[in-house]
Amino acid sequence: MTEMFELNYINYLFSEKTSVTLRQMELIAEGKRTPSTLFTAEKNQLQALFLSSLSLSKSEWVDRMKKLSDLGWLTQEEGRYQITPSGQQSKEAFILNYPLLNCTLEMSDALTRKAFWHWFIFVTQILSEFSYGNKGYIPYISDRLTQNRIKKWLAEQGFPQKPLAFMWADEIKAFLETLPDELGTFIVNQMIGHNYEGMTKRQTAEKHGMTSLEVLLTTEILMDRLSRFFEESDLLKSLWDTVHKSCHYGLSDSAYRSMTFLMNGSSIHSTAAIRKLKENTVKEHVLEAVLISKYTGYKPLIPKEVYDQLRKLFLSEPSLSYAQAQQEIQQLEFFWYRLVEIERIRGCL
């Protein structure tokens, strides 16, 4: 059952535009933040694989892809895997059985969703224990830095802890009421409060008849759904915003620092000099921001005449390669080419 869920899930990740090698699948699943891996995920519509909790070794990937090929769901041509009509039918059936998966997740929220779950559980524990006047509990999160951030967030809400606890409970209750009973129970079972330890991931999997992968995916998707419940949830929205900021809005720490300089008017050259980095490293940070956070302020980084030429070339030849573009534009930087190529893939030209 565990393996079949994994096989169905991997097959579900493929679309008609997906054509990838085994190594590319591995790198995307590992969440590698190199521009080439992020671009491959974008081009092949495999953002969900980048966001997933799927963790397989190289030999396991070989095994799973072989089995998917044997099932006739995927086909391999010149080392690249693509979905078949049979695989598409299986994918549609899988979505019917697991409708939660049929949602659009933002790349920029990948780190936030994971962290938000832990903050959400810890805030619930703190307010629950406070309601009973208990200060001798073992904190759900042991990391001092995160503990201090959460304490600061609680203090910033501007309410005494008792009213805050009631407000928090009301918002959670309102959200749970939007879910089917089974999913509401799924969340409640894992929450921690006064004299209530909550279930482990393994216990949750056993109770709900899920695989460990299903538990992880369901948890993250529910956190995404919770993030869309913010119009009626002031505290939850505030907590999400704080977690999202602490996660650098989805960017790596280094990319976030570079983008802070660039967005304040610094050039790539100046940013590299200030941060003691190579200019190419800063350019990679820009690509990370474009591919993960859909940053749109990059056009001034491309000479206008080059941008106009690239745009024209891509409009006449959507599959334009870098080598072909170099023949038309002298001293063309790959960085410029890639940025405009991303626009073409996203249909923004």
Rank of each mutant, 00 (worst) to 15 (best):
F5Y: 12
L13T: 03
K17W: 05
K17V: 11
L22Q: 13
Q24V: 10
I28K: 01
A29F: 06
A41Y: 01
A41W: 04
E42S: 09
A48L: 12
F50A: 13
L51G: 04
S55I: 13
K58N: 13
W61R: 08
W61D: 10
K66E: 14
E77M: 08
P85D: 06
Q88C: 02
A93F: 00
L96V: 00
C103S: 08
M107G: 01
M107Q: 00
D109N: 09
V123L: 05
I126Y: 06
F130M: 04
S131Q: 09
S131Y: 11
N134D: 14
S142Y: 13
D143V: 02
L145E: 14
Q157R: 09
E171L: 04
D181P: 03
T185D: 13
V188H: 00
T211S: 15
S212Q: 10
I221R: 15
L236T: 08
Y249L: 10
R257L: 08
I268A: 03
H269E: 14
V290Q: 06
K294C: 08
T296M: 14
G297K: 05
P300F: 07
V306D: 10
Q326H: 07
E328C: 12
Q331K: 15
W336S: 15
W336K: 06
E341H: 15
E341M: 15
E343F: 10
